[in-house]
Amino acid sequence: MKTLRVRDIMTTDVHTLPANASVIDAVQTLGDCGISGAPVLDRGRIVGVVSRSDLAGADGVEEVDHKPRVDTVMSRVVYAVRPGDPVMSAVRLMVAEKIHRAVVITEEGALVGMLTPMDVLRALAEGDHVQEGDYALEARREFHHDPEMAVGYGEQWGSEMTT
């Protein structure tokens, strides 16, 4: 089986928000699109990512025309992966950084997609093997010649365990 790559499961129809958009407009856009977050662009360049929870906490932020702006509440740290990266690398990034979306960019930094936990779940539901070709997993696996030792059968295991 082949290694599942980000390009195989990413969302390519990415909705973006301009950095100078009002928080009210951003909430409306996310709601209309049925998404929970989006990359934020300034002159075509990714400058951040904003989520519904960022927008919900927009009280007391810098305002333009008496409206809070997206660029004052967005996360300026952008976690990105490449289309050719193994899916498990992206999953590990999302878990390690506790993020719900990874921006997919080309080597030149152009936005080509987004990867979310829902994309990964969809792939799993369709029967894709997310860990195929996951060399980090293979390196961690232990191979035992004695299956009884590998699973811990025997009385000594039960008597030493505590809860």
Rank of each mutant, 00 (worst) to 15 (best):
R101Q: 11
F143C: 13
G154A: 08
G31E: 13
G34Y: 06
D134G: 08
L93T: 01
T72I: 08
D59W: 15
V49I: 15
A38H: 13
V77R: 15
A26Y: 06
A80I: 08
D13Y: 02
P18D: 10
Q131K: 05
A90G: 06
E148Q: 11
E148H: 09
L4V: 11
A38F: 04
M74R: 04
R122D: 07
D42P: 03
R140G: 04
E62V: 13
G48Y: 05
G57C: 10
I35N: 08
A56I: 12
R76D: 15
L17A: 07
A125G: 08
A56F: 12
N20C: 04
I9L: 04
V23E: 08
V49G: 00
D32M: 03
V112S: 09
S51R: 12
D13G: 00
V40Q: 02
A102G: 08
H100S: 10
G127M: 04
G109W: 12
E63S: 14
R122A: 03
G113W: 00
L30W: 05
D119A: 05
A102W: 01
I46D: 12
H15P: 01
G158E: 15
V14D: 03
G133F: 04
M74V: 07
M10Y: 07
L124D: 11
E132T: 06
S159L: 07
H144I: 00
A139K: 13
T3Y: 00
V103P: 00
Q156V: 08
I105M: 15
T11F: 02
G44P: 12
E108A: 12
R69P: 00
N20I: 04
Q156E: 14
F143D: 14
R141T: 15
V49F: 03
V112N: 05
D59V: 11
V40F: 00
E155C: 05
F143W: 11
T116H: 08
M1C: 00
D59Q: 15
H145R: 07
I35Q: 07
L55N: 05
N20Q: 05
S159C: 04
V91Y: 06
S51P: 01
L124I: 11
V87T: 11
R45C: 10
D146G: 04
D134K: 06
V14S: 05
K2Q: 01
E62Y: 14
Y135V: 13
L115F: 01
G109Q: 13
R52L: 12
M149E: 15
E148V: 08
A96I: 02
T11P: 03
M10T: 11
R52C: 11
M114T: 13
D42H: 14
Y79P: 01
T3Q: 04
F143G: 09
M10H: 09
T106V: 11
S22D: 03
Q28E: 12
I99M: 07
M161P: 05
R82M: 08
L30C: 08
T72Y: 14
L4H: 02
P147H: 11
L93D: 03
R43D: 12
G158S: 13
I105F: 07
